[in-house]
Design a protein around this nucleic acid. Structure first.
Length: 315
DNA sequence: GATTAGGATACCC
DNA sequence: GGGTATCCTAATC
């Protein structure tokens, strides 16, 4: 998810909000109204690129800062993880890549991030099929990612079909501070599902494979099995998306399965969202990790370090 | 103070 | 019964 946020996030960093969006404070937004392409020929890429420029400040400030979700200072995101496309500048990226390449990159990132969110939340990519519980998960997730004020109660008991039927104005009425952002995000999800359905009928689900993701993919993607996700699977899913979650959890030695939890509170919060456990914290999460010691799934590395763990069977 | 370790118990599937 | 979630004490960093 995350995708092209009207409030700033570029593709590639779509799951993370930009700096400076304080919780409860409505970010300054420009008027925009993304609409699904009228025909498949227009494509999702055109749909996104139509407001692509709005996602970037003219001075590139956001891109330079990187998509920090935490309050602490972070080094700038690596270019390949968070591509910056200056569509305004002559001689910029658009001259080096064809428009089609850029479009395809944008759409690819958007779809990948939606798929990631689907896996983490265990929901389908098509909002129409969401249960009221799925809707609440998505709302909680989007609130969290974009620092929006809590709006779950305003959409209580709404299923995906009902949610999708709401107009932007109705979103705003239910949530004056973040309704338009939520509506925009929902529109993106709807469009992605719509495009996917067009391009691969019957394939609108969260299990699209991603060639760039290697050994853990098949064993980690629990959402396809219908089984509840295990904590170790969830951690591997986060580790598979360094461009989105690298500031929360990252590999220290992928070959050995050694990873470090950089932001214990955030990882715990994500796990809590995933499991619908709002009271989740690192104390409880770490206790669950320690249960894996006996089972031979996770252990502490030979040289024990704080917040560093190791998968016993990384491959 | 935060993290680690592990016992005990409860809950849900 | 498995897999957590929760609460707890104690030790360590």
């Amino acid at each position: 998810m995350g995708s092209a946020s009207p409030s700033a996030a570029p593709p590639g960093c779509l799951l993370l909000p930009p700096d400076g969006l304080e919780k409860g404070a409505a970010p300054e937004r420009r008027a925009w109204s993304p609409r699904r392409p009228a025909t498949p020929d227009q494509g999702l890429s055109a749909f996104y690129l139509s407001y692509f420029d709005m996602l970037y400040p003219e001075d590139g400030t956001w891109a330079a800062k990187g998509p920090a979700a935490g309050a602490h200072e972070e080094p700038p995101e690596e270019p390949e993880q968070c591509p910056v496309i200056d569509s305004q500048a002559p001689g910029g990226a658009l001259e080096e890549h064809s428009l089609e390449q850029v479009q395809s990159m944008v759409v690819g990132e958007v779809l990948k991030d939606i798929e990631t969110a689907c896996r983490l939340l265990s929901i389908t990519a098509d909002p129409v099929g969401w249960s009221p519980g799925n809707v609440q998960k998505w709302l909680l997730w989007t609130e969290h990612q974009y620092r929006l004020p809590p709006v779950g109660r305003a959409f209580q008991d709404l299923g995906g079909k009902e949610l999708c039927a709401l107009s932007e104005e109705q979103f705003r009425q239910r949530s004056p501070l973040g309704g338009d952002v939520l509506h925009a995000h929902l529109d993106i999800w709807k469009s992605a599902a719509w495009m996917k359905e067009r391009t691969s009928p019957g394939a609108v689900h969260c299990c699209a494979s991603n060639s760039e993701e290697s050994w853990t993919d098949s064993e980690v993607d629990s959402s396809c099995s219908g089984q509840p996700i295990h904590l170790w699977q969830f951690l591997k899913e986060l580790l598979l998306k360094p461009h989105s979650y690298g500031r929360f959890i990252r590999w220290l030695n992928k070959e050995k399965g050694i990873f470090k939890i950089e932001d214990s509170a955030q990882v715990a919060r994500l796990w809590g969202i995933r499991k619908n456990r709002p009271a989740m914290n690192y104390d409880k999460l770490s206790r669950s990790i320690r249960q894996y010691y006996k089972k031979g799934i996770i252990r502490k590395p030979d040289v024990s370090q704080r917040l560093v763990y190791q998968f016993v069977h990384p491959i």
